[in-house]
Write a protein that binds this DNA or RNA. Structure first.
Length: 588
RNA sequence: GGGGGCGUAGCUCAGUGGAUAGAGCAGCGGUUUUCUAAACCGUUGGUCGCAGGUUCGAGUCCUGCCUCCCCCGCCA
């Protein structure tokens, strides 16, 4: 019998195969394999109950027939998998220590795990759109989520075999540049000799300009003129715009580096400014779009939700908007990158926009016979202020991302020093940097992305419980064991180590084998918090094992057995942390 | 008015129609001559917003209601 990477998936197939051999079963039977409570087994099949009900049969006797047939199959080795029937008619499956051992020998490092996980996506071409900030604005706490969630998802997709392109669709074009350029000119601000924080200056000038535009129509006209000049490629305004973009990009890149955000291409809205005409023409030609109240809009008369909510794809003043560029963008991604799937990582408020976008693309691509990509909007809730309202740039004091990171690192440093009074200063700084930043990221990733949450320093910078430092600590302790024993983490244990024996060894090994089911779940919903929960539980089981079962012992057989478990736990914890965008430490 | 989301322990949150609803924090009580105690073990704590319904089985699905947040034509 093969040692399957993903036992739940294989069992599901084999149960169907067994059922097909039995006259009492038919196609309506779905095994419904799920990970089980460890006290019952590794997996459970829930499907017998509804099936027996529909056939008016006794679930337990139906289950007995199926289990017997399953174990008659050549693919099943009774010394590797045990089945039992429990309760009203559940089938419980338990992987034996022998199976656990063989699996751990086979999937012994990140490469072998990645190779096996690659079958989930099999090279599917996916463009993922994140974090897509707007230029000329400083990053604040609101940018945390798209960065960390987008990064975790793209890494997970890549690990599971997708051919991913991270496309940073920055907001670098639009009406606000008229106001900003007006603001810069009215202050005679020199972009060539920028101050320490030029983005702060740009933001200030935009705010000042925006306030003036609101109260003075004459200034509004001036701002509009600047915008028209920019759109007509006036050299002076284009040069200003380019400098704004360069300043913003430089500042963003610094932040991406700190936050571990990796980007393949940056094709902002400005890139699509000459590509929207084709959109207007095509959508008009196929009568999908029409002029209404001066604007070009798409109606969805046959859609229950949007029948009275059109999608504006060109403003009545002739200018493009979010919808125009998003339509041009998705076409480009399909035509140029051959995207088979496009994933957008943005906040929840944009759900209507993306539903309308997807509806429009569905009709448009259908009529034009363009290759239809899968489209997913991965949305997340808002980070709220103490008042329960969204933290906004304009009102109140937004917490800058930089300040948040600095505070996190400072707090981490205090703890590192406390725990390691004799550590050299540069090492303290390195560890504090990783601990602080990863705590920040993990706090966001470990929550189900679809909820809002209230910002609090203590919450985002928590270092206890289900946090990055807890996981990093588990990793550091494993490294310490191997340092102490002077054994390589990549040592081949196949000759020396035997199957797990103690309660803690077995519990830990079983958890390690749950990884593929976690990938499957996290991928199906693109929710990184499932991976966080798993890693936390894994680290918890490791800590229990570590406490109860000493690794470096006289008995070489016991030591080899436990060292192998440590090495495998380390590899999975490290791989998992890296998927979350967290670089593990060897010491802390 | 239409739509989306949220509501689970004192707090912050997990929970794929499945078995006695779980963690962390906080609280209480333990564990260190032993591989990193940033740890481990034990323990207290529940009207899963309310009311119906579907189901062998509902925190999970459906209907209605309540609280709060968000979106609903020229912002992104």
């Amino acid at each position: 019998m093969d040692i399957w990477f993903h036992p739940a998936k294989e069992l599901n197939l084999l149960l169907k195969k067994a059922a097909a051999n039995l006259p009492d079963f038919d196609n309506s039977f779905d095994p419904m394999i799920r990970p089980a409570d460890p006290k019952f087994g590794d997996f459970q099949a829930n499907g017998i109950l509804p099936f027996a009900k529909s056939k008016k049969a006794n679930p337990r006797s139906v289950a007995e027939l199926l289990v017997k047939e399953l174990h008659n199959l050549d693919e099943i080795d009774d010394t590797l998998i045990e089945s039992s029937i429990a309760g009203p008619g559940f089938i419980n499956f338990k992987l034996t220590p022998k199976f656990l051992h063989k699996w751990l020998l086979k999937y012994n490092n990140a490469d072998s795990l990645k190779e096996a996980a690659g079958t989930f996506y099999n090279g599917k071409k996916i463009v993922i759109d994140y974090p897509s900030p707007n230029t000329a604005k400083q990053m604040h706490v609101g940018h945390l989520r798209p960065m960390v969630i987008g990064e975790a998802i793209q890494r997970l997709l890549r690990f599971c075999g997708a051919n991913v392109i991270c496309d940073n669709h920055i907001g670098d074009w639009g009406t606000n540049f008229g106001i900003l350029i007006y603001g810069i000119k009215s202050e005679n601000y020199n972009l060539d000799t920028p101050t320490e924080n030029p983005l702060e200056d740009l933001e200030r000038m935009y705010k000042a300009g925006s306030a003036k535009v609101k109260e003075n129509p004459a200034i509004a006209d001036l701002a509009r003129e600047e915008l028209v000049k920019l759109q007509n490629a006036d050299p002076e305004n284009m040069s200003l715009w380019q400098k704004i973009t360069d300043i913003s990009t430089a500042a963003f890149e610094k932040m991406y580096k700190i936050m571990g955000v990796t980007i393949d291409v940056t094709l902002g809205e400005s890139f699509y400014r000459d590509k929207v005409e084709r959109i207007y023409k095509e959508l008009s030609d196929i009568s999908l779009a029409q002029i209404d109240k001066g604007a070009l809009v798409v109606f969805f008369k046959d859609d229950e939700k949007f029948k009275e909510q059109p999608f504006i794809i060109r403003k009545s003043d002739g200018a493009s908007n979010y919808a125009s560029t998003d339509l041009a963008t998705i076409l480009y991604r399909v035509e140029h990158f051959n995207a088979e799937e496009v994933i957008y990582v943005t906040d929840a408020r944009q759900q209507d926009h993306f539903q309308q976008l997807f509806l429009t693309v569905g009709k448009w691509f259908g009529i034009k016979k363009y290759k239809m990509p899968d489209m997913r909007h991965v949305w997340f809730g808002t980070i709220l202020g103490e008042d329960g309202k969204a933290i906004k740039t304009k009102s109140g004091e937004p917490i800058r991302l930089k300040a948040l990171i600095d505070e996190a690192v400072l707090r981490a440093k205090k703890i590192v020093l406390e725990k390691n009074p004799d550590m050299p200063a540069d090492e303290v700084q390195n560890i504090a940097q990783t601990v602080g930043v990863s705590a920040l990221k993990y706090a966001d990733l470990s929550q189900n992305r679809s909820g809002d949450y209230v910002f609090s320093w203590d919450k985002l910078l928590a270092f206890d419980g289900n946090t990055a430092p807890y996981l990093l600590y588990a990793v550091a302790r494993i490294h310490s064991i191997f340092r102490k024993a002077q054994i390589s983490l990549d040592k081949d244990f196949s000759a020396e180590a035997s199957a797990p024996e103690t309660e803690q060894e077995i519990a830990l090994a079983r958890k390690l084998l749950a990884l593929p089911s976690v990938f499957e779940l996290a991928l199906s919903e693109l929710r990184p918090h499932y991976l966080c929960t798993y890693l936390f539980e894994l680290a918890g089981l490791y800590s229990s094992f570590y406490n109860a079962n000493k690794v470096i012992v006289e008995d070489t057989a016991v030591m080899a057995r436990r060292l192998m478990l440590c090495a495998r736990t380390l590899r999975i914890l490290e791989a998992g942390l890296r998927l979350l965008g967290i670089e593990p430490l060897e010491k802390m």
